[in-house]
Design a protein around this nucleic acid. Structure first.
Length: 856
RNA sequence: GGGCGUAUAGCUCAGGGGUAGAGCACUCGCCUUACAAGCGAGGGGUCAUUGGUUCGAAACCAAUUACGCCCACCA
């Protein structure tokens, strides 16, 4: 074995071996007594490539799934991709544009063909990247939202919702993207503050209104005031003449108007403003559409054909010419909606669209979490979830796109409309609705459509509901809430998952969001290539504190790589020394062996608890410190003595060392599968850790608090002497003669190990002790050849003395306080008493040592 | 306008009513026979501010200040 771990030499081979042996393949009929464990992967966009967010998301899921697999669960991690309607269509259209074409040049069918071709050719590169990460997904079950099976699920549920009157078509005001030329749902609109101009327009002698979108006045069909606003009471029910148009519009009274805002009078444009649309409905006002799908003015007159911003300026100019502008226009910051795909300012627009009636579905989705059938982790995010499901507007599901599931509604020659299921025959002469469904409609079915629904497949029976949904909190609304709605609806009230685990966003080392424009984006593949998949995963998992975002930095990936290398060398050392896992653990073993076995049990329990609690940072941290600080820094060093000596004790230690590494590698395997698999095979000579290898279970029989206390004491002594050696400038490898007096300290059995670890030799004829200090009940005299650094030694003693005095003052203060003695728990009092006594002893010892020190 | 959250070492973050922790960074010394991707020893924090509860507060409570995020149909 080389002295350094080279991930590239093992990762590809191992992954190939795992998949070709079918180790990730779940089987619904295998071991029916074993519980099922299911995770469906959040399907990445077919246009996408692996970014750090995926790497985090997948590392978490893989950790959960691999652990369950080791625990004997029939574990399924189902991969797949999303067709990502608008995003994918945009990409392909962009490619067409490069050839000077639009999708209309191709026509609908040819365009779809082009998208499919593009998908076949360059889509799904993320799947290859998932292999690089080591995702233990079941490739035999890969799905795509536009697959035949999943499309059937889409049509089936559409039909069912349609028949249940939960889907309807209506003319409503919707968010319209004038660039993508399609309707958008509420959550596809991102609001951000934008500088605009608020202009006040005198509509009549009595009424002035204010607006940031002056061009919409061309579509005004009323002016609204508050019903109890005395200023306007006499005008309610009258009509005024709308400037520039000559149209007469009524003055209506509506509760929505805030009399304290502006003039208390509002222009009403039902066709182009959501509020106004509602006012219009309440007062039966006409909706006058004055902007087309490109947001160009359609109203007859001088503005016709102008683009919206051009029209805005022109309208203001014209009004100014008529003396209608009150005061000057003033800058005004207000929130404006942008298309989440292309950042174009969204134009609210009345049009005929399809909607899901969400009230009953959202109610069920809320209840499932409220009554505890589904848990949200971390729980702090539940209020967000409730706020959303409890206030959700009807969901606009139609998109004026060509890439997606076409709405399964046909229109007959005589104006009839009917929804046909996937297996129904379409009557002659009927034409299908031209729109496609929102891409989130099909993703909402993902937890069961991927398992074969609507058919009662073995997969569906065995693996639904899924165990946990792992995703970023940013798509709680987009995806999670909708899966809840559709899952509960389609699966007779059985929620699609038992737990929703929401992780944070990956950020850079300063906590900044990764963004292309800021230039701080890290490509996980770069890390995988440089440091290995395990190091990449471990870095992410170490940062995954529940409820927090995950900062990462290149240096941290290096640290993780170093950790993998540490495991590599620890195992190398073990193999060089004959460690093995054959046969039962010895019944008799040393205190050192007993200590590490005892610590191992605690670590097993801790890691289990942390993973169950989705606390991957702590699980990783626990193993990192156990492996590095305890196993490598202490156990391996202490084990060297018996291993060198040979004999029965060496035999026992070889077995215990094998045991500790065996269990450690198993515990780490879900997080860092490659290096652990490689090392475990080398250590045990067995085939694989992935399947059929038990996840460790803590065994209380090995708990050994006495051994732990002895080793803690040994560590204290060794550290103390090392500190002296370091202060004295003694080189680590330099042998120093020493005399050790153990008294009745339990460390007396460990003299050989202590001498070995501290490079202490036996005193010879020339021995002249020049440093003496008791630590941990042991007196150590060191021969430093008469050349001790008095200044350094004085500094050391004085520092210790100051610390002891401070300690004494602190404890004495407490113990002299009657309230403290009366009210503090006994354990705390005893602890203080012990500290006080120790401090007193230290002070007298240090003082005499200082006095005995020769002058500098 | 609502909701949630955060202020702890240079950076990123854990912790938690009883002497302040980790990783990285930093200083010093080391190729000590698993590992220099390493080993050993260190330095560094009034735990945001102000009050309260308590024998004891960095931790609990309140207010303040400063950030962050989510939702929202303020013309």
């Amino acid at each position: 074995m080389p002295t350094q771990y080279a991930p590239a030499d093992v990762e590809g081979d191992l992954y190939e071996r795992w998949t070709s042996a079918g180790l990730f393949t779940a089987d619904p009929s295998r071991s029916p007594e074993a519980p099922a464990y299911t995770i469906v992967i959040p399907p990445p966009n077919v246009t996408g490539s692996l970014h750090m967010g995926h790497a985090l998301d997948h590392s978490i899921q893989d950790t959960l799934v691999r652990r369950r697999r080791m625990q004997g669960y029939e574990a399924l991690w189902l991969p797949g991709m999303d067709h990502a309607g608008i995003a994918t269509q945009n990409v392909v259209e962009k490619r067409l544009r490069a050839e000077g074409k639009t999708r209309h040049d191709l026509g609908r069918e040819k365009f779809q063909e082009a998208v499919w071709n593009w998908k076949a050719e360059s889509g799904g590169s993320i799947l290859g990247q998932m292999r690089r990460l080591g995702d233990s997904v079941d490739w035999t079950r890969e799905r795509f939202t536009m697959d035949e099976g999943l499309s059937r699920a889409v049509l089936t549920i559409f039909k069912r919702l349609y028949d249940d009157d939960l889907i309807y078509r209506a003319e409503r005001i919707i968010n319209w993207c004038p660039r993508c030329l399609t309707a958008l749902s509420d959550i596809e609109v991102e609001h951000s503050d934008r500088e605009g101009e608020l202009v006040s327009i005198r509509y009549s002698d009595d009424i002035t209104v204010a607006t940031t979108r002056a061009e919409t006045m061309l579509g005004d069909t009323a002016v609204a005031v508050h019903p109890s606003d005395e200023r306007y009471a006499h005008l309610i029910g009258t009509e005024i003449e709308l400037p520039l148009t000559g149209r007469r519009i009524p003055v209506v009274a509506d509760e929505h108007v805030d009399p304290a805002f502006g003039t208390g009078a509002v222009k009403v444009t039902p066709a182009h403003d959501p509020n106004d649309f509602e006012i219009g409905r309440r007062h039966d006002l006409p909706s006058l559409v004055v902007l087309d799908e490109h947001a160009r003015v359609t109203a007859e007159g001088p503005f016709k054909g102008m683009e919206r911003y051009e029209a805005r300026a022109a309208v203001v100019e014209a009004l100014r010419g008529e003396g209608r502008i009150v005061k000057e226009v003033r800058p005004y910051t207000h929130s404006v909606g942008h298309c989440s795909r292309c950042q174009t300012v969204v134009e609210p627009r009345v049009s005929l669209q399809w909607f899901v009636k969400v009230a009953p579905l959202a109610q069920a989705a809320g209840d499932a979490v409220r009554d505890g059938r589904v848990g949200i982790e971390p729980a702090e995010l539940s209020p967000r979830y409730f706020a959303w499901v409890d206030n959700m507007h009807d969901w606009c599901i139609s998109r004026q796109l060509w890439w997606g599931h076409r709405i399964p509604v046909w229109y007959g020659p005589d104006g009839e409309q009917a929804c046909f299921g996937p297996d129904e025959e379409i009557p002659e002469g009927w034409t299908q609705d031209g729109d496609v469904l929102d891409t989130w409609f099909s993703s909402a079915l993902w937890p069961f459509s991927t398992l074969g629904w609507p058919d009662e497949t073995p997969d569906l029976q065995r693996f639904y509901p899924t165990s946990v949904l792992v995703t970023g909190y940013d798509i709680l609304f987009f995806w999670v809430a909708r899966m809840m709605m559709f899952g509960l609806y389609a699966m007779d009230g059985v929620a699609p998952f038992k737990t929703i685990y929401l992780h944070g966003m990956v950020r850079d080392q300063f906590g900044k969001k990764m963004s292309k424009s800021f230039g701080n984006v890290v490509d996980p593949l770069d890390w995988i290539n440089t440091y290995g998949a395990d190091a990449t995963r471990f870095t992410l998992l170490r940062g995954a504190n529940p409820g927090g975002d995950v900062p990462v930095a290149e240096e941290w990936a290096q640290g993780s790589r170093n950790f993998c290398n540490k495991l590599w060398n620890a195992t190398r050392f073990a193999l060089m020394n004959g460690a093995h896992v054959n046969g039962d653990l010895p019944t008799a073993y040393s205190t050192v062996d007993g200590w590490i076995l005892s610590r191992l049990q605690t670590v097993i329990g801790d890691v289990d608890r942390h993973i169950e609690a989705f606390d991957f940072a702590k699980a990783a941290e626990t193993l990192y410190h156990f492996a590095w600080d305890e196993v490598c820094d202490w156990y391996l060093e202490l084990a060297k003595v018996p291993l060198m000596n040979g004999g029965d004790e060496a035999e026992a230690t070889r077995r215990v060392l094998g045991e500790v590494l065996d269990k450690l590698l198993r515990l780490l395997h879900p997080m860092i599968p490659f290096v652990t698999e490689e090392l475990w095979i080398a250590l045990t000579g067995r085939e694989t850790l992935v399947r059929g290898t038990a996840w460790p279970v803590a065994e209380q029989a090995y708990a050994a608090p006495d051994a732990e206390a002895v080793i803690a004491s040994l560590q204290g002594l060794v550290t103390e002497v090392r500190r002296f050696r370091s202060d004295q400038g003694l080189k680590p490898g330099q042998r120093v003669a020493a005399r050790l007096e153990f008294g009745d300290s339990p460390l007396r059995d460990h003299e050989e190990a202590i001498r070995s670890i501290l490079r202490l030799t036996a005193p010879d004829a020339s021995f002249a002790a020049t440093a003496t200090f008791p630590a941990e009940g042991v007196t150590v005299e060191l021969d430093t050849s008469g050349a001790i650094d008095v200044k350094a030694e004085r500094a050391r003693l004085e520092k210790d003395l100051a610390a002891a005095r401070k300690d004494l003052a602190q404890t004495s203060g407490k113990l002299g306080n009657a309230d403290f003695v009366a009210k503090a728990p006994e354990a705390v009092i005893n602890k203080n008493k012990a500290r006080q006594a120790a401090a007193e002893a230290d002070i007298s010892r240090l003082e005499s040592q200082l006095a005995a020190l020769p002058a500098a």
